[in-house]
Amino acid sequence: MYKLVDDRNKIGAAMNLTVVKTLQQAMNEDEMVVALEADLGGASGFSKIKSSHPQQFVECGIAEANMMGVAAGMSMLGYKPFVHTFSPFVVRRAFDQVYLSGGYAKNTINIYGSDPGYTSAHNGGTHTTFEDIAIMRTLPDAVIVDACDDVQIAWVVKEFLKLKGIHYLRANRKAVRKVYTDDSRFKLGKGNVLKTGNDILIIAAGELVSDALDAAEMLQEKGISVEVIDMFTIKPLDEELIKNEVKGKKAVITFENASVYGGLGSAVNDVLVNCPQRVKVKNIGIRDLYGQVGSVDYLKKTFHLTAADVVEETIKLLNRE
């Protein structure tokens, strides 16, 4: 079970180093766990694995498509591959390889696509992916996770290694605010109700879960009661939870650091159209925009992905006829 931290302003361990540490621990116990990099080991921290477990590390050079195929091939001999590259290079450059050599051929590739959405920050628009969730959702039986903090990402890495198939983890490399206590445990495909409330249901994923909780507190002060769900598994989506929790709510807000076209927003809408209850919905995320360069704070404001934006949109939505 999961528990929220008392101090939500506390920053956790760096997300990338948490992935690295978790993989190293897994490698100590299982020699078939292998990490693959495409010359971003310095950025991901995977270079530490090269030092600690050289026989369980594969440097692929700047060749992401090849890396996905190599991972698929290694999985055919029983290896449990975990690849890293920046998230846009997973879905835009190497999707055909993930799809065919991986998914269609029933091979296993675990993928850490780092710095999705605005978290690409100073790498700018070329390195920004808003479309990764939409693209990966079309891959049959793929698992997609947007992890919100270090505790969750460590759990997800361990969980992926138990499974066969295509598993995509999107998350910042840097440290983010803590959501969960260290002993929290999760279940893939099950959303977590972090806060109960009566008026509004906010469904968020990734590090924006912290901002969603901020927004809920701000709305509470205005007399609006908000429930917040961490929908960290975007596929398979916890449809039952959505159907249950929407009951009695006046409105649903989805909140994601990704394109709402095919993203969490679309996925939730697909469930809501099949609910007997009619409810107002606002999908907060990216529409027809490319990424751009800047600090995380600047980009969150520019793309209207702050807690204040959620508050504003919620009030607008409630006042909408």
Partner: peptide, 17 residues
């Protein structure tokens, strides 16, 4: 079938072996 892809998979198989 998607040309080129078998090359990388064979590379992965060979490395694993």
């Amino acid at each position: 079938g998607s040309l080129g892809q078998g090359t990388s998979v064979a590379a992965g198989i060979a490395l694993a072996m």
